[in-house]
Amino acid sequence: MNIFRFLGDISHLSAIIILLLKIWKSRSCAGISGKSQLLFAIVFTTRYLDLFTNFISFYNTSMKVVYVASSYATVWMIYSKFKATYDGNHDTFRVEFLIVPTAILSFLVNHDFTPLEILWTFSIYLESVAILPQLFMVSKTGEAETITSHYLFALGIYRTLYLFNWIWRYQFEEFFDLIAIVAGLVQTVLYCDFFYLYITKVLKGKKLSLPA
């Protein structure tokens, strides 16, 4: 464990909690892409199948449980509890264009041709593009609530910090996982224009609005 990975996990956890609280407190999931949340639930499910078979540490296991439980809770709030506030008309990204290519790629490029490893690889590839429906929805509605932009910032920063974690691990542990690194780079690049808008607008107290 190193500071970058720890801060990355904290950032990821806070993004998940910000979203849960936003929906629960405001009793509304307006502006939130249910499709991205569905993809995140798939990402965590396919990545943490070794939850019971492969104990790394108490921290690792408890974080996995929290991630899986909170992602299902978020999907449940969007599609069940507060579905009346779900903005389906603007959440129209074709997720099959994300799921199918990443599934095929996970069969072609992986570390081990075993079910668990292919599912892990699929989860890594899917996570790198899972935010696209949400970013697409923000660009379609032309704006995002400030709390939603904080959620997106924390979520984007988490994988950016992981990039530094991989530099650290390459340097000091001679460990590197090219699949995770390349996917992490793609994931971070997808946030770049959002990061720009967040830093130039939201941090100056303005509302996040995209040029429609």
Binding site: H12, I56, N60, H111, D112, A180
Partner: peptide, 10 residues
């Protein structure tokens, strides 16, 4: 193929 180390990252 070398036994792949278990993934220790979240």
């Amino acid at each position: 193929h070398a036994v792949h180390i278990p993934h220790d990252e979240l």
